[in-house]
Amino acid sequence: MFQDSPIYDRLIAECGDVPTEVRREAERVNRELEMVLRPLRSPGYHDPSQRPAPHPGAGWQRTAMLPAPRPQ
Rank of each mutant, 00 (worst) to 15 (best):
H55C: 04
A68W: 02
P69Q: 10
P56Q: 07
A26C: 10
T63R: 15
T20S: 13
G44D: 13
E34M: 05
N30H: 09
E34I: 04
P69K: 08
R70I: 08
E25V: 06
E25F: 10
G44K: 05
S5K: 13
S49Q: 06
L40A: 04
L33Q: 03
L37N: 06
S42Y: 00
E25D: 10
P56A: 10
F2P: 04
Q72E: 11
E32Q: 12
P19F: 09
Y8P: 01
E27I: 06
Y45P: 00
E34S: 05
V36T: 10
V29M: 11
E25A: 14
E34A: 11
D17V: 07
P54W: 01
P69I: 05
D47P: 02
E14W: 11
R28V: 00
E27Q: 13
S5A: 14
Q50C: 04
R24L: 08
E34Q: 04
Q72D: 11
D47A: 03
S5N: 15
L40N: 02
P19T: 08
T20F: 06
T20R: 14
D47H: 06
R51S: 09
E32F: 03
V18D: 01
L37C: 05
G59S: 06
S5W: 06
L33E: 02
P43V: 01
W60V: 10
V36S: 02
P52F: 03
E21G: 15
G44L: 03
S49H: 08
P69L: 08
R24K: 15
E21Q: 14
S42E: 14
D9P: 01
